[in-house]
Computed example of a mutant assay.
Amino acid sequence: MPGTTEGIVLKKVSYSSSSAIATIYTRKFGQTPFMVRGIGKKGGKSAALQPLTRVEIVCRFREKNQVQSLTGLTVKPGSGFSGHPVKAATSMFLAEFLYKALRVESADEELYDFLDSALEYFADDENSTNFHLILLIKLTRFFGFHPSGKWSEKSNWFDLLNGLYTTDRNSSLHMLEPRLSWFLYEMSLAGFDQKIGELTNTDRRKLLHALVEYYQIHLEGLGEIKSLPVLIEIFS
């Protein structure tokens, strides 16, 4: 019997001139590869496979299959970021990041609902320059290494290795300076629609590098994020 679920497209690899294997993070099955046919046809499914597109799918899920058979695919309203340069670069980066970070994750409806709600906001947001940073910080709760403690004038360094705010600027070899540590703390408390102080593009680039490093330290196998330089260039 075919089943239905919601999903977020993370990666597409061409399989033939008219088909592709799409890796989709689904609400019911976690991260799953699907064979998608008919993408080369006029009005086909290619547009539905762009990074972070939110979709509804019909499939015959069989645990023994490495690639699942997808029989229906529709795009949810408010998906697709190709017409907006900053959002397109952000979605490319986040899709690659989530593909690698969620690779070993099984179904987690709370995590899926968080991502779905965040991306719905992202689609409507006119000023999306901090979205990726706030999302990465908030996601740490689901992976079990959310920054601990509070930023203060004394505990104003963030130790990336130990995941805490500290008075000791030399507590590890992976430290975030006080100004950026304060922004990190503010973002951990903020909603996606909240403006964060006097954050410059230079600050955003440094914070993004620091957050990727933080995940690489604490999330085994994350590895290099190849789309990171593209997003860095956007904020240059």
Rank of each mutant, 00 (worst) to 15 (best):
G191S: 09
D108A: 06
W157F: 13
G72D: 13
A89W: 01
V55N: 00
L231I: 11
S46I: 09
V104H: 00
G78N: 15
H174W: 15
V67D: 03
Q68N: 09
N162S: 14
E224C: 00
N201G: 05
S152D: 08
F81P: 11
K42F: 08
L133R: 02
V36W: 01
E120Q: 14
N156M: 11
G7C: 05
A88H: 04
L49K: 04
V13H: 10
K138H: 06
G43E: 03
H146M: 15
D159Q: 11
A210E: 02
L199A: 06
A95H: 09
S117H: 06
L219R: 03
Q194K: 07
T26N: 03
G38F: 07
I57L: 08
P51N: 13
G3H: 15
K45G: 04
Y215G: 05
F158K: 10
F97P: 14
D124S: 11
D168P: 09
L136W: 00
Q66T: 11
T90A: 07
I57M: 10
F97V: 14
A118V: 02
N201P: 13
L219F: 00
M187Q: 09
V104W: 07
T4I: 10
L173N: 15
I225V: 12
R60L: 06
A101E: 08
T129F: 03
S79P: 14
I137R: 00
E153V: 13
T74P: 01
E153D: 13
F61K: 07
K45F: 07
L115G: 09
K100S: 15
H146W: 14
A48D: 15
S171A: 14
Y215M: 01
V230P: 02
L115K: 03
G72S: 15
R141H: 04
N127T: 07
R62S: 13
E186Q: 12
K226C: 02
I8A: 02
W157I: 10
G7I: 10
G80Y: 01
S19E: 12
Q31I: 02
L228F: 08
N127I: 13
